[in-house]
Design a protein around this nucleic acid. Structure first.
Lengths: 143, 143
DNA sequence: GTAAAATCATTGAGTAATCAAGTATATGTC
DNA sequence: GACATATACTTGATTACTCAATGATTTTAC
């Protein structure tokens, strides 16, 4: 009957856990933004100058260049981010966090932190550490 | 600046790793089916009688009842699964694996196994075990 | 045994992504 | 300095979901 290997089973469970988690997050509708939008704001906020290239955001988040373009459109429209040219390379357009975006992140972050703790309680710190280490090996390098 | 907690960071990395993995899987287009379709075939094939209720599939996979209805439509159309009524409960409609579906799974499973091993090499068995255990705590109960 | 609540599945409308192709610019090679 | 290749981003068409609402049936409570 079933012969799929432990690696594949792990990937299947990873997908399931992620799907349930993301839906729960999106359902909460943390201050009007979804999970991916929250992550974008986080990355921008966390960068030294509050800006990043589109492609770098996409790579960090794990979506395509096309995906980031489409995610950012409504975020620009409601004023969470703006765009800025790169003087040295005209292909690049930076994504810049606006004060409104920063404020929204600050608010959303509280809710997001609380929800994350419901999903993975802080007392499971051994699990969190070991999960973080394994995910890092698999390409999850967001700090 | 950033104050998001380790649990939240872990969830963000989980999402990223899963996104990259799923895209890689879907891109391979394993015998014409995507990741979720593969998982559906796996669960059916693995069940004792080759059938399952829609809602049970949805719960195991981590998608909604609506989502499973929509995933199964094209799979029915190309003959990988059929539907069957439950005599005792007229609300239920079973998803039944066809011989064609079983055959496709058997073929796809080889490719899927190989890809999974590229992503998480079998030699990382300690990581696989510990990842499986943690994911199980978080609701990843597919065996 | 009837009314209220719960469960299973589907549908309409919308969203967040994908890929493939295209545009614009930059970089490397000879 | 021209030509091929690579990189950054966008767009059209499509896919794989979501939620909210609905229909149908079953279960529970009185």
């Amino acid at each position: 009957m079933s012969v799929i290997n432990p690696s594949l089973k792990t990937l299947i469970n990873l997908a399931k856990v992620q799907a349930v988690m993301a839906r729960r997050f999106d359902r909460l509708n943390v201050h009007g933004i979804g999970f991916t939008e929250f992550v974008i704001l986080y990355l921008l906020q966390q960068s030294a100058d509050g800006k990043a290239r589109r492609i770098d955001l996409a790579d960090k988040i794990g979506i395509t260049a096309s995906g980031i373009t489409r995610m950012l459109l409504p975020m620009e429209k409601i004023g969470l981010v703006t765009r800025e040219a790169n003087e040295r390379d005209a292909r690049v357009s930076y994504v810049v966090l606006t004060p409104a975006g920063k404020q929204l992140f600050t608010d959303a972050e509280k809710t997001a932190n609380a929800l994350a703790l419901e999903i993975i309680p802080a007392k499971e710190s051994k699990d969190i550490t070991s999960l973080t280490n394994i995910l890092a090996k698999l390409g999850g390098n967001i700090t």
